[in-house]
Design a protein around this nucleic acid. Structure first.
Lengths: 347, 347
DNA sequence: CTGAAAGCGCTTACAG
DNA sequence: CTGAAAGCGCTTACAG
């Protein structure tokens, strides 16, 4: 191994043909005979030649790279979505750059900047809880980079998007709680500027309304998207004279907080308190009582989001003409934490 | 917004200066006056100019990008390590490309190929369970890309590396089990060609030897790095006439499997069976009984690994001269699953 | 079927 | 302090 990287010109010199021809051969251009393609590729391997994507990208104006930005890579839903995106990108011969916003608007902007500098062809994003302004997302669009939002999105931005049937899923989940006989179902929500959390709340409200339950307004808390906040809220509510007898939360971590508070206060779940989470994190089926939740089908959603991009470029349509809204149906998973009737039987 | 991307020449034309000067100003070159730097940067923002990293990289021969390859991004240890790497990269103005091998050698090779094509300056890798051959890693080195292995490494490859004190940690963990009075401690290990698993096994053996315990050899099982396999093995062992009274496993998922088997067989943990895992996954403190484990200090380890690279380039040393082996001390976390004495007190 | 030449957008050694 | 020119490694329209 000598010091220099092997480039197309080295191959050309070795083979006694022109660099352009080598390039075409390497790309299996139809006008190059199979025999030459083979010879060139063999020589490339022999000399340990590696294609330099940056140079090709610069010339072609496309990086064949897509970027994905999520709040956290270690949450089940996001890591599954990324697995789905990866699969599709891989099948389409594109690279993937994964960034985390860590729920911070500032870090999200940095990630977007980086991806623009990297000249990605498309950005798939699930926005941070802090993000309210559409400015940075519009910046992406103004740079002719395809933008696809998934799960958490801003509806003030014109882009394709893939989301779950959040309203319906929440409605079903809360209905399950009501069917189990819970009457005072509290709600712990997320930031209101994110439509998915607004939708989950609406689903909750619809189920409550339909059952003609009267819920005190302090049982409905928005903008509480963390275990810590959920712990504080549920502690407060459960110590009331007239406490809620169930919680529906927009994330599993919030539900986990509620569960731990119930435990420390000696309130039995599901007998005295029903709990229903959202996202079907890995831990939900491991804890006791196992937590009821909503499976968002992250992998399927990720695949769908990525396919949206590849379908668009395959059809060579400008992004603005093709803003698609796709819905992935989630699955209600009822476990012990919301099964009062079963618990009664068990005793 | 018109269709074309704004480039340095556009700025130059607008400002009536040369492109080279604009480039220098944008990079705050010392020979350019503060005033001009400011004017140029202001104009850049005004025209919505974005630096094209690919072009710069091509010219400079460095991409200011580092790649990281891990088996799975959604395991606590790896996602923490990535968070640490991210932090250091960000502080040093470098981008990060994250790839998953999904424990597959083939996918790992693909990831390495991609990163070479992307011209990354450095690859940080924790290899897949399947990886036995050093060929692909050596390929990285032969392309003058810095290679740093962390956690799971191949010692047949010459590279810097950062690992935990696996042997000592395992020794301590098993000693804790022995101190609690467990005498027939079984071991469920990982692939033997990975040194970290060999080390964990050695730590186990050392503790066993030191306590002069005699363990039947079928209590020691290698190459069983998944929950499913651990379930099979522990089912088999626990049904023996003379079953083990404790398990030490090299991952938390294996321990989880053992725990679930114990539960289904009606074997009380920790009273009749002690369990000790490894990695301190998020679920370990959520399940019941809470699982004893070893915290690998993933974030610290990730930071250390990334810093290894930045320190090297800061000192402009060829990689071969600087192969460093760094050790991150892990922390033994004793929880209910291995605390027989406490359980006795409780009753 | 094959090659010479230009150009993607940037940086930098060289010259002034 | 400032600019003209070359070049990073590739691809492709053009020409033959």
């Amino acid at each position: 191994m000598n010091g220099k990287r092997i480039i197309i010109y080295d191959l050309a010199a070795e083979l006694g043909i022109s660099a352009s021809y080598v390039s075409r051969a390497l790309n299996s251009h139809p006008l190059v005979s199979k025999k030459i393609v083979e010879t060139v590729k063999k020589k490339a391997i022999e000399l340990n030649y590696k294609h330099n994507s940056h140079a090709a990208n610069l010339r072609q104006g496309s990086s064949k790279t897509i970027g994905v930005i999520v709040p956290h890579i270690n949450q089940s839903f996001f890591s599954e979505a990324i697995a789905g995106i990866e699969e599709v990108c891989f099948a389409n011969n594109h690279s993937l750059i994964i960034c985390q916003s860590h729920e911070s608007y500032k870090q999200e902007c940095t990630a977007i900047e980086t991806l623009i500098h990297q000249n990605v062809d498309c950005i798939l994003i699930s926005i941070s809880a802090e993000t309210e302004s559409p400015d940075y997302l519009n910046e992406v669009i103004s740079h002719k980079i395809q933008l696809i939002q998934f799960d958490r999105y801003l509806d003030t931005v014109n882009s394709s998007r893939v989301v779950n049937n959040n309203k319906e899923a929440s409605y079903e989940a809360v209905k399950k709680l009501i069917e189990e006989g819970y009457r005072q179902v509290a709600f712990i929500g997320g930031p209101e500027h994110l439509t998915i959390f607004k939708d989950r709340k609406e689903g909750y409200l619809k189920a409550i309304r339909e059952a003609c339950l009267s819920i005190p307004c302090h049982f409905i808390v928005d903008n509480a998207l963390s275990k810590e906040i959920a712990v504080n809220i549920s502690t407060e509510l459960l110590k009331l004279k007239q406490p809620p007898d169930a919680f529906f939360t927009v994330s599993d971590h919030q539900s986990l907080g509620v569960l731990q508070v119930a435990e420390s206060l000696g309130i039995e779940v599901p007998e005295k308190l029903g709990i229903f989470g959202f996202a079907n994190e890995a831990f939900t089926e491991l804890i006791k009582p196992a937590l009821s939740s909503v499976d968002q089908k992250g992998k399927e959603l990720g695949k769908c989001a990525a396919n949206l991009y590849f379908r668009t470029i395959a059809q060579r349509i400008a992004s603005t003409e093709t803003d698609k809204k796709e819905i992935i149906n989630s699955e209600i998973i009822v476990r012990q934490s919301s099964l009062r009737s079963m618990a009664a039987v068990k005793i």
